[in-house]
């Protein structure tokens, strides 16, 4: 019998029983409690994240160079001289803002993935905008990173529209607790943000297979642009992906993080960036609440203390999997 009076709203008690985590819960009990404020710059600044990753032997995308001052902007052509493709990012950007991908460079012409040609001037102007803080959080002064292109795994060719699909894994005190793939669509304009229209595919922690897919908070079966069947999605080297994610905890010491990982054809899983305030949409993509898993990890650590990353991944896979292998 349903006594809840509001049709469009769900009862908070139902949500609580299912263990769905809300924003306030996340802010007070997880981010506030497990993420030390002083460590935030490590994840908000992508250059620092990268240096930290190199030090800790966590593989990341390859840095070609960085531009920190306006007078350095003209050095850009020198930095990318021998590269046929590269990617320019703001160090403090968020949500894929200000990322410029060049897939082909010929002399003084640079081509975007959709074939549009840009001159060196155009790219220098883009870098100037990054330096001025156009894409950074709160408009702070920023700097530009130039990275190697990612050759994403062919497995995903059918699952993405103009963009690199990435795997987001929520890592709680070193234990991967939930994961999803974010596939860009025409609606999301090549960006991987779910609220902008990207497809979120929940991934089973045990098998690396798709659990469920959503776009705009509603379940879907096929990728809206390519028509590929989303339930067939299987992330290759899944164990390596989870190990990489789990090691990000030891490296960053942040208790509650979202790790964004891409799969390179040659180099395997690479850390793209860390997020100290990962969103709640992952629950919708997985059709599961985060809270029971987080509580389990808390209880488990209380009992067994610190475990090495590979052990933690095994525990997560054992308890949080959906599919049986």
């Amino acid at each position: 019998m349903n006594l809840w009076p509001l049709k469009k709203y769900c009862s908070p008690f139902t949500l609580g029983r299912l263990g769905i985590m809300g924003m306030n819960q996340r802010n007070v009990n997880y981010i506030g409690r497990y993420n030390e404020r002083a460590l935030y710059p490590l994840v908000d600044n992508k250059l620092l994240t990268k240096e930290l990753a190199l030090k800790n032997k966590v593989s990341t995308t390859n840095l070609i160079g960085s531009i920190k001052h306006q007078y350095d902007v003209e050095n850009f052509t020198k930095i990318v001289k021998d590269k046929s493709g590269f990617c320019i990012k703001p160090a403090h950007g968020s949500g894929g803002k200000g990322i410029l991908v060049i897939t082909k460079a010929e002399g003084n012409s640079f081509y975007k993935p959709n074939g549009q040609a840009l001159s060196a001037m155009d790219i220098e102007r883009h870098i100037s905008n990054i330096l001025a803080g156009l894409f950074s959080l709160g408009g702070k002064q920023d700097f530009a990173l130039i990275e190697d292109l990612i050759n994403f795994d062919d497995v995903f060719a059918d699952y993405s529209y103009e963009g690199v699909p990435d795997v987001r894994v929520i890592v709680f005190q070193g234990y991967p607790v939930m994961s999803m793939m974010r596939l860009s669509t025409a609606a999301s304009d090549g960006k991987a943000n779910l609220h902008q229209g990207a497809v979120g595919v929940g991934i089973c922690l045990r098998s690396g297979k798709a659990v469920r897919a959503v776009q705009f908070n509603q379940p879907i079966e096929k990728h809206p642009d390519t028509g590929a069947l989303l339930s067939n999605l299987q992330v290759p080297q899944w164990e390596n992906v989870l190990n990489l994610a789990a090691r990000c905890y030891d490296m960053s010491r942040l208790g509650y993080i979202g790790t964004d990982i891409v799969l390179d054809k040659k180099r395997g899983p690479l850390l793209l960036e860390l997020n100290a305030r990962p969103g709640m949409a992952i629950q919708t993509a997985n059709g599961a609440g985060l809270l029971p898993r987080l509580h389990f990890v808390e209880a488990f650590i209380e009992k067994y203390g610190y475990l090495p990353p590979e052990e933690r991944v095994r525990i997560s896979q054992e308890h949080f999997g959906v599919h049986n292998i």
Partner: peptide
């Protein structure tokens, strides 16, 4: 740390999906 009113609406489809009978035991 409770839910926001807007979240009761946002998570309504999710709660219905989890609650729909699958024969499996609820993960929570």
């Amino acid at each position: 740390t409770g839910y926001r009113l807007s979240e009761l609406k946002r998570f309504k489809p999710l709660a219905e999906q989890i609650n729909s009978p699958t024969g499996q035991k609820l993960e929570a």
